[in-house]
């Protein structure tokens, strides 16, 4: 998509507005559709909102986890490195479905009395931890790609380690990590469907219910797939534009 490269600011704006307009206005064309879609339009809208909500929450928390754990993996402090290594090893070595079930069923037993997590919160936690582990590796690679001389230059100018990281290392490592992070975000849109296992009524679950009531899986699942495609397109446009935005000062 060339226009995202040429006008990254506009592309980001358009993708965000497009996503909002879609979530807001999709009920109109859906309810105009013939049965079994039309009568269930509100359910599709609600399901899409849950899917986008899970994606946005787990996507942003996952980036924060990725940056922190990515830094932790590069730390000079052994125990912290070990902790971050173990986290990535654990999450990448077990199925996402198991992680979701674990948070849903095992966390309540481990948590202090009186704190109750909604199904949605459990799904959001599990997805955040999952995508965070994959992001960790991307962020680590990004940080390693920043030339060490620039860190020395920043420190020699008197910038503190935190200023050096925020002003010099992070922006450049993000540029390197972004394509991989975007990939993880696109997977997340679809992985959020596993939340159906803990009775979160997201988009796939909606499709399953509507076809079970109407006995018409073909139009129902085509509708679900179309909504997913629109969502992933919006997210990839967003991240591609962000990539173009960050791609300044680089050799092409």
């Amino acid at each position: 998509m060339n226009w995202t490269k040429r006008y990254p600011g506009w592309a980001m704006f358009a993708a965000m507005i497009g996503l909002l307009v879609f979530l807001w206005g999709m009920a109109v064309p859906l309810s105009a559709a013939p049965a079994p879609i039309g009568p269930a339009a509100d359910q599709f809208v609600e399901g899409a909102r849950i899917t986008v909500g899970l994606t946005l929450i787990a996507g942003s928390v996952g980036v924060v986890i990725g940056v922190l754990a990515g830094l932790g993996k590069l730390s000079r402090f052994g125990p912290l490195r070990w902790l971050c290594d173990s986290y990535v090893w654990l999450i990448r070595g077990t199925p996402l479905l198991l992680q979701i079930l674990f948070v849903w069923l095992a966390f309540p037993l481990l948590m202090p009395e009186g704190i109750e997590l909604s199904d949605f919160a459990c799904a959001a936690i599990a997805l955040s931890l999952n995508v965070g582990a994959y992001n960790t590796e991307c962020v680590r690679a990004g940080i390693l790609a920043v030339p060490h001389g620039q860190v020395e230059a920043a420190r020699a100018l008197g910038l503190t380690p935190i200023q050096t990281f925020m002003d010099v290392v992070l922006p450049q490592s993000m540029r390197v990590a972004l394509p991989a992070l975007a990939n993880n975000l696109a997977s997340l849109v679809k992985d959020s469907s596993l939340a159906y296992a803990i009775s979160v009524v997201e988009l796939t679950m909606v499709g399953y219910r509507v076809q079970a009531e109407s006995y018409q899986p073909i139009p129902v699942f085509i509708t679900v797939a179309a909504i997913y495609l629109i969502l992933t397109t919006a997210f990839t446009t967003l991240t591609a534009a962000l990539e173009a935005q960050l791609d300044v000062g680089q050799k092409r």
Partner: peptide
């Protein structure tokens, strides 16, 4: 930090911040 504020350094490989 106090010393680094008073001592400037110029490197062989320039080390400019390439994203700025």
């Amino acid at each position: 930090d106090a010393i680094r504020r008073e001592v400037g350094m110029v490197f062989q490989s320039f080390n400019l911040f390439s994203h700025l």
